[in-house]
Design a binder for these strands. Structure first.
Lengths: 334, 334
DNA sequence: AGGATTCGAGCAAACGTTTGCGCAGAGAAA
DNA sequence: TTTCTCTGCGCAAACGTTTGCTCGAATCCT
């Protein structure tokens, strides 16, 4: 109802031109101390708040103070933590975050990317749905700063921050082997995702390092959702010669796998050992406490946001690529 | 780089006035079939995307197709689920969601509310930080549609959807009593939050119904974060005459409490029984599986978004208030 | 046929900013 | 005094839409 005051109202009341008000607001141009004071006071009195929409319309680039964050699924704690990371640095720099869930759905992803461009966000942080994601490619062609997280894009010219999936998986499987396991089931990620492939490579390389052959019937690919973890764990454990240990490549699938194990009444780690990817809220109080590789999700978000802000300030900055290290947390499940 | 085409470009190429283009875009006004077709074709050819910023600047109310969602903490699965709920209905209605974390911090909340108004979102969904939250009150005074979720505001004139905290807590504690427990520790929410108070009331009423006195040394108030759950559980279990059962009033504090129990090497439910509020990802595969009261978080989000959309279309609609029912899921921890 | 209505489309203002340009006045240099 | 350089500020255009008016032409009614 009470229309919020605009520059014009402030200008009128302070008896100056709107351009003057704009300048004191932005600190640009030369303004006398007396008028600046007067204008500032009127702004306070009126409770003036600049209209971001108008500002954005006028100044095309880099001033919306809006970051886009588009993630597969906010219910995945990895992405929730990541979101907190970007959100925190955004807040510290007076940026707001436009957050969207695309649910691994390409149409939804495209919709949201369109929205973000239409909203003229200053930049976008996202894990590409896959490596030559056309929608994302289009966005970068349009000149919007983009930083990739978690997964990467085939174009090498972008800022990106990922965590080293190969060493994460390698360490995990190495540890499993060190516990004496010979048949290690893999519940992997999608074969067309870079994370899925890298973790698979870690799994294989650890086998090679341990002079173990990988048995193809023991490796399965899920879709990073809970249901597939549940199904694949049942499949693996139903084998004639079932694996004695499971390596599950993300948190949600880990939950599904644990369900399956519980349904079968198997004891961890004696009857089946298990190590997961991604720290889960209850992991350390689980019985037994879960051995997992923990990704620095919050850090990923933080770094990505910082990179993005840097690029917004200086679009010519050469692209930098960060690779953070995951940590194997050895508890009791393997 | 490649400046995205505007109405003007389309108009020029189709040899019509921009107003005509605008009208075919919005389907308003009368347009001849031939010109409409021509304009549509040019739009497609040019890959025209309307500029939401400009549109929003022009049409003040109800057309930004942007919803604001401001929540305490995205890492809390309750809010993550809720967010998914609003996000899903938003997407179905072609709305995008501007999501912000205020981390129970009033300054941050105010900042984000300012941003949202400055972005002229069509409406806002939020759990008020407390019952007479001045920042929120200001927003509704400014005429922005607001729907409260989870917690309520002292003003009765708003749309809101909450879950019945009294029955949730009542059922839980009733069940605990039915298991034969006489000394039941409460790890409650903040005393100045409506949820905290309602759950406390449920706790007390269940005692009364079971003809049990509530002992004041057994009730403690946390802040809904993990650390306070941890600390308060330790406090309660250190008592000379410690409780034989714990009722923990949210998910994050539940995790903290479970940590404390693990640290003390106590066995659930024999040495200490426990029931939590909020379903946790691993609750049903936990050992023992956790008895919790599960809130329909996703539903809350869905309803809230639907209410908000309705109000945006018809601002005069009388405010409606929904109260959803939580469900006590009895497993093995009590 | 003449007047009234409707249809289709153009003109221009408005939304709230930012910003290049210009200009008056003051002080400095000559 | 004249000329020149700053300083401080106003003027107005522009950003990409939407929308109330206007208006010619076509259609309709009697």
């Amino acid at each position: 109802m009470a229309k919020t005051p605009s520059l014009i109202d402030v200008a009128r009341k302070a008896k100056v031109n709107i351009s003057t008000v704009s300048r004191v607001l932005n600190g640009t141009g030369k303004i006398g101390e007396d008028t600046r004071g007067r204008v500032l006071k009127v702004m306070r009195d009126l409770g003036y708040k600049p209209n971001r929409v108008a500002r954005r319309l006028r100044t095309q680039e880099g001033t919306s103070h809006l970051l886009g964050l588009v993630i597969p699924n906010i219910q995945n704690t990895f992405f929730a933590d990541l979101a907190r990371g970007v959100e925190d640095v955004a807040y510290r720099n007076n940026f707001a975050v436009l957050l969207c869930n695309y649910d691994e759905d390409e149409a939804k992803e495209r919709f949201y990317l369109d929205v973000m461009q239409a909203e003229s966000v200053d930049g976008i942080i996202l894990p590409p749905i896959h490596e030559r994601d056309p929608a994302v490619l289009q966005v970068v062609r349009n000149g919007v700063p983009v930083v990739c997280v978690d997964r990467s894009l085939s174009t090498g010219t972008l800022d990106k921050v990922e965590v080293d999936n190969h060493v994460g998986a390698f360490k995990a499987v190495e540890h499993i082997i060190a516990q004496g396991h010979k048949r290690i089931g893999l519940i992997g990620g999608p074969a067309d995702s870079s994370t899925g492939r890298e973790r698979l490579r870690g799994y294989k390389d650890a086998h090679a390092a341990g002079e173990l052959a990988v048995k193809s019937e023991l490796v399965r690919f899920g879709d990073y959702k809970q249901l597939s973890g549940h199904r694949l764990a049942h499949e693996l454990l139903s084998l004639n010669d079932p694996p004695s240990a499971l390596f599950v490549c993300n948190g949600l699938m880990m939950i599904g796998a644990l369900e399956a194990i519980a349904e079968r009444g198997l004891r961890i780690p004696k009857q089946v050992a298990i190590v997961g990817y991604d720290e889960l809220p209850l992991a350390q109080v689980f019985n037994p406490p879960l051995t997992v590789v923990k990704q620095p999700a919050y850090e990923v978000g933080r770094c990505a946001a910082e990179l993005l802000l840097k690029r917004i300030q200086d679009p010519k900055h050469p692209p930098t690529s960060l690779k953070l290290l995951p940590e194997l947390i050895i508890r009791k499940s393997c």
